[in-house]
Every structure is written in structure tokens, then in C-alpha cells.
Write a protein that binds this DNA or RNA. Structure first.
Lengths: 232, 232
DNA sequence: GTCTATAGTTTGATAGAC
DNA sequence: GTCTATCAAACTATAGAC
């Protein structure tokens, strides 16, 4: 159904970005302005993740880049623009991968497993963005204007994808019918994203390991032996 | 043993608070100073939860209470003191309940179920504190001094309680031995606390309902039919 | 593209009258 | 216990030199 932030462009290409690109030209040459800009965004994202968006000052961002705060405004017109770019970049990538997994097809359990893997595999490359999204979601949403409305639109699209597969799995008898699809989706989603707080690849488990562990418990449960369904 | 923030008091009473009480006298008469103080803490907690700790100004807190910002400093010596009280009150209550559940005894699955219920039942009364703890944990921990060290001590004690029961369950054959206890604990913990973002009693599910739903999926899994263990 | 310099706000906290 | 008044510090953002 197109991107969550495209007001025009009603055509339904699955590559529609969450937000329209800031610019379509330049991005080719090495050492380009957009590379510099991306670098600054990454530095800022790490600070936002570590200290929170509001607690991070433009002075700190600039200092991290070895320049003065005033110089930052040559690249960005506000602090909000920076965090905006952090979040929309992540959401574009994530939703793109989810769409691809759905287009790939397969039975619900396979697709759901793949979506779990996509989530965990995003923890490492998008650590900062995911942290910011969780910690500063409420604040960013509370800002005046509709600048961050795309966050909710992206969230809605993702929810539809997950819940659709859970329901499909129940319809074909692959998932137990006595669980609430939306509730189950939220618990899966939350426990994946919140793992960004403690998961570090290179520990006992790598990204694939944690995803497999999670899929195992999710589908087959923690208990041993036969099912002991205590539900009516 | 003992409380996580008691530097003296080496005796191991299970009622040891996370932080020493601010005062032990007064708290009896109606309309007391401590009631007024508690009321202000609650107002502040709601604002902290909604906007974030740093984004909430002392002026807003005061305005919510119908006084001016300067007057707040008759009750608290700093904004940090207020959030400190929000969090330590919650942790005292939570850890007290966990300890009671452990002392009650029972098999690991029963105890774990009870601990899940305790968590979900805390969402409603401690909504603001739980939200603040999740969103502002990093920032509070980054402040100079050891004021919020008790957060980590409390976290550690809770982790020991959960992991201990999971390991016990594996030892007695009640839980599958091929899951990582610490990893499993973290996923349970995270998916309970993060539910504070969307769970509202009075919706389709009440507190007991969501706890049962969660326990069902946790122990028995999402899949139907026999176990399809895909692990070595 | 960065620096200097600073405008214009807002913040947490304090002192003292009442 | 609240208000008045205010301070010192910090903040985002801007303007113009280089």
C-alpha cells in the first residue's frame, strides 16, 4: 500500500520510503557532502542513544565531530532534523526487509521466523536508532506539528504485516487458535526491540543464535514433555 | 542478601528497602506533610512518564500542583530527588513481592508463573515509575555520583531470583535444558515491562488475562500439535 | 565548511517577604 | 507553605567574517 509517509504517490511500489528522500542528486562521489552529513548523523545517533535526545546538546554533537556547534547548522537546520534522519533511515530499511520477506512467501511459521530474524539482525547495525526510537518516542510524538507522524504510520504498517501472518497461521492450523494475534504480536515485537539494551554480538550468542533461541521458545515453549494446556 | 542499597544493616531481613527511608516519623495524621509530598511525587511521576525526565521542567511540575516552581523546593531539594523517590518506591514494592513469592515456595513453574503475574499486576499501579525506569534509565545512570547505583543493585537482585528459578526448573526437568537461563529471563522481563507502553486494563484483556496469555505462550509455545524441535 | 560572537530563551535553583 | 524576584548557567539557533 505504499509508504507510510507518502502523501502523494498513490502508486504501490514496495520500495516506497517511509519519508521522502531529502535529495535525490549527489551521493555518488567519494568524500561527498552527503557522506559528511551521514557521518554527522551517525555521531549524533550514538549520543542520542547514550544520553537521550533532549539531554544531548548540539555542542556535544559538534564536539564529537571536531567542529563548533554553529558549524552544525551548515548541515542541518535543527536538532530535530538530525534525529528525524536517524529514525527514518532505520524504518526505511526495516520495512523494506519485512516487505521482501512477505513477498518471498512461505507458510506462516517460516515467514514469522524470518521476520524474527530480520528484527534481531537489525539490532547491531541500527542499535542507536532503535534505542532512540524506544526512549524518545513519546517525546518526539509530543512535539507540535506532524513532523514525526510517520513513526505511527510505520508502526501501523509493521503491525499489519505481523498480525496478518499470525492470523494466517491460526487459519491454517499452524498456530494455536486460543491466543490473541495482536497481543502476541506486541509481545514478540517488544521482546525483540528491547533486547537492544543488552544484546551485544560477540558475547555468548551471536545474532543468529539469539534469533534461533527466541524462535524456539516462541513456537515450542519453555516447558518440557507434553502440552499441559491449562486453558479452557 | 538484604536490600540492594543498604550500606549498613547487614542483617538479612527480607523487608529491607531498596533505599533507606527518607524519614521514619510522621506519616500518621491525615493531611500530613508526607501525604502532600507523596501527592507531588505522583504528579511529577506522571509528567516524567509522559514527557521524559529531562523534558519535564520544575515549572511544569509546580503548575500541575497549582503552585510556583520556587515553592517546590520547600518539599524537595532537587528534581533528581523527586525521580529518585518515584523509582525507589516502585522497586521496594516489586522486590518485596518477588521475595514473598519465593518464600511461599512451590515448584519452579508455579513460582515463575506467580512472578509473571506480579509483574503484570505492577503495570497498572506503577505505570509511571516503570515508564520512567525504561526511558530514563540510561540518563539517570549517566549522572555523576552514585545516587542511582541502587537501580543496578535492584536489577541484579531481581535477575538472581528469576534465573535461579529457571535453572531450578531445568534441574528438575520441568523446563527444557537447551535454553539459556539468563537470556530467557531477559526476554521474559523485557516483554513484561515494555507492555507498560500499550497495556491498559479495561481493554479486551485485564491484568489477569494478559498474565495468563503470556504464561501460556511462554510455557507451551505458539505452535499447535506435537513438538517440532529443530534444535540439535 | 568552519569559526567568532552573540542573540534570545529557558532552565534548575536560591533568598527572603509573608 | 507559598509567592516574588531573580541569578547563573545552559541551551538552540543565527549572522557574518574568513
Amino acid at each position: 500500500m505504499g509508504g507510510v509517509n507518502t502523501r502523494k504517490n498513490s502508486g504501490g511500489a514496495t520500495t516506497t520510503p517511509v519519508k521522502r528522500q531529502r535529495t535525490t542528486k549527489r551521493a555518488a562521489s567519494a568524500g561527498s557532502a552527503s557522506e559528511r552529513r551521514d557521518h554527522l548523523v551517525r555521531l549524533a545517533a550514538d549520543l542520542f542513544a547514550r544520553k537521550g535526545f533532549q539531554a544531548t546538546t548540539v555542542r556535544e554533537i559538534a564536539e564529537e565531530a571536531g567542529i563548533l556547534s554553529g558549524s552544525l547548522y551548515h548541515h542541518f537546520d535543527s536538532k530535530e532534523t538530525i534525529v528525524d534522519e536517524v529514525l527514518s533511515t532505520f524504518l526505511d530499511d526495516l520495512i523494506g526487509r519485512y516487505r521482501a520477506a512477505l513477498e518471498q512467501g512461505g507458510d506462516p511459521r517460516s515467514i514469522l521466523s524470518e521476520m524474527v530474524r530480520i528484527g534481531f539482525s537489525a539490532l547491531e547495525p541500527h542499535r542507536a536508532a532503535i534505542t532512540v526510537m524506544q526512549n524518545d518516542w513519546n517525546y518526539l510524538r509530543s512535539l507540535p506539528g506532524d513532523r514525526f507522524d510517520y513513526l505511527v504510520r510505520a508502526e501501523d504498517e509493521v503491525e499489519r504485516m505481523w498480525v496478518g501472518q499470525i492470523k494466517r497461521g491460526q487459519a491454517v492450523g499452524q498456530f494455536r487458535p486460543d491466543v490473541d494475534p495482536k497481543l502476541t504480536y506486541r509481545m514478540i515485537r517488544d521482546s525483540i526491540w528491547v533486547a537492544v539494551r543488552w544484546f551485544r554480538p560477540g558475547g555468548r550468542l551471536d545474532t543468529d543464535g539469539i534469533a534461533e533461541h527466541y524462535v524456539t521458545v516462541l513456537f515450542d515453549g519453555l516447558a518440557t514433555g507434553e502440552r499441559t494446556s491449562q486453558r479452557g
